[in-house]
Structure formats: structure tokens, C-alpha cells
Amino acid sequence: MNLQDFFLAVTITLGFIKICKYLFNFLNWIWIVFLRPTKQLKKYGSWAIITGSTDGIGKAMAFEFASKGLNILLVGRNPLKLETTSKEIIDKHGGNVKVKCVVIDMQDISGKEIMKRVEEAIDGLDVGILVNGAGVAYPYARYFHEVDLDLMDSIIKVNVEGTTWVTKAVIPSMIKKKKGAIINIGSGSTVVLPSYPLVTLYAASKA
């Protein structure tokens, strides 16, 4: 085999491996989305705690879990939104679920205080699922060096530290009963491009 044939064989082999990888990922996606049996969420515990639960994905997951018969602990910084979301869930699902609310502004209190408030809120509850859905994003695209210090501080406190401290508060009970599920809501900005230069800090915090 001459050198040209060797490089051609290597190129074909690498291309075949790459195609197989994409095919495997596609088939895995088909399995997860369409074919995988539905999980019985209540086997983890009777309560789900959701941060960022009054808007977007967090709110949608609160309604979805409630539809499965899980009791919901809503965590957010706006008391009015928490009350509204709680009422909406109860109105839709009647007496099938219980809903509790805890007000926590992760931008304004320490990590230890976040942990303390969550521990107090879940005391006596059989928490089986934690959804870390709270997040702070840029109000508009900008380069990293243009991000003001207050926004930078808020993104790190909520997206990184808040997620860490809430998980720290919830996970001991899951370990004790040897079951539980933790869902961290990320962002497509971490995978759409190898680098996301106009939302660098947000993408890094939601990777």
C-alpha cells in the first residue's frame, strides 16, 4: 500500500467512525424521546422542589410534575408570582396535590442562608426530585469585558452558587433513602457554538 492509499484508508475510516457516532446519537435521541418507558416519578418521593418556578421551564415543570401527582415546593424571589403560580396549580389539579412556597432571592443572601431556608422548607417532606431552574441571563448580548460587575455577580450567585447551595440542602435526604433525582436546567447556548462570545459568562454558568 502506497502513502496515498494509506491516507485515503485513514480518511475513510475516520469518516465512518464519525458517521457512526452521529447515527448512535440520533438513535439514542429517538429512544429517549419516543421509545423509553415513562418513569414513575413518585417512586423517588412525594415532593418535587423547583427553583425558578414562576416562569418559563421551571413553571412548566411544576405543572407537569403536579399532573403526575407530585406535591410541589415552589422556590422563587417574587412572593406575588409564587402565590399566583401556586393558585394556578391548585386550580388545575384540585385536591390531588399540595403546594408550598418559599421566598428566596439568591442574588441578595449568602449561600449558607439559601441552604438554611431550603432545609427549613423541606423539613419533614419526602423530597424525591429537585429541579434547579433558576437563572439570570444577559438583558442583551455583549462581550465579556463589557459585562458590568453587578450583572456578573448576579449571574454567578444565581446560576452557580444558588444551584450549588440548594443541591447541598436537598441531597442528604436523598442519600439517606438511597433514591432521588436532581435536574439542572442548562442552556442551548452551551452547545450551539463551540464558543458563545456574546453571552460568555451565562453560557459558562449554564454548561
Rank of each mutant, 00 (worst) to 15 (best):
A134H: 08
T85S: 11
T38K: 15
K42I: 05
A66C: 08
V158A: 04
W165F: 15
G133V: 05
S86P: 12
A134K: 06
Q40Y: 05
H93Q: 11
V103E: 08
T167I: 00
L201F: 11
L14W: 10
A141Q: 05
D5T: 09
A48S: 11
I175T: 05
S205K: 08
I104F: 14
P194N: 11
R117A: 03
L130I: 04
A141P: 09
L125Y: 02
L198E: 07
L198C: 02
V160W: 06
G135V: 06
G56V: 13
F63H: 14
H145T: 15
V170N: 00
I89V: 13
A134F: 06
Y44R: 04
D126H: 02
A204Y: 09
L80T: 15
K92Q: 15
Q40W: 05
N96M: 07
T13A: 15
I19D: 07
I129G: 00
P194L: 05
L80V: 12
D108L: 13
E83H: 07
Q4S: 11
L14G: 14
C20I: 15
V127C: 04
A141H: 01
E119T: 02
K18E: 11
V199G: 10
K112T: 11
N25M: 13
K59C: 10
W29G: 05
D91I: 09
N78Q: 09
G56L: 05
V118C: 02
A207L: 10
V192R: 11
E64V: 01
T11P: 06
A9S: 14
K178H: 10
K59R: 15
T163S: 11
G180M: 04
G188S: 09
A62Y: 03
K179C: 11
I171Y: 00
E113Y: 10
V33K: 09
H145E: 15
N184K: 04
V191P: 03
Q4H: 08
A137C: 05
D91Y: 10
A66T: 07
D5I: 08
K18N: 12
K168H: 03
G135F: 00
L198H: 03
Y44D: 03
G135D: 01
V102T: 12
Y140K: 15
E146N: 10
V170W: 00
A62N: 07
L23V: 14
I171D: 00
K157W: 08
P79G: 02
E120A: 14
A204E: 07
M174H: 01
I57C: 06
Y44G: 01
V103Y: 03
T164M: 10
G135Q: 02
V136T: 02
K39Y: 04
T84S: 14
K116E: 14
A121F: 02
L80I: 13
K68N: 03
S187T: 10
V33Q: 04
T163Q: 02
L151G: 13
E113G: 13
N28Y: 15
D105F: 01
N25Q: 09
L74T: 03
L3C: 09
Y22S: 14
L27P: 08
A181H: 11
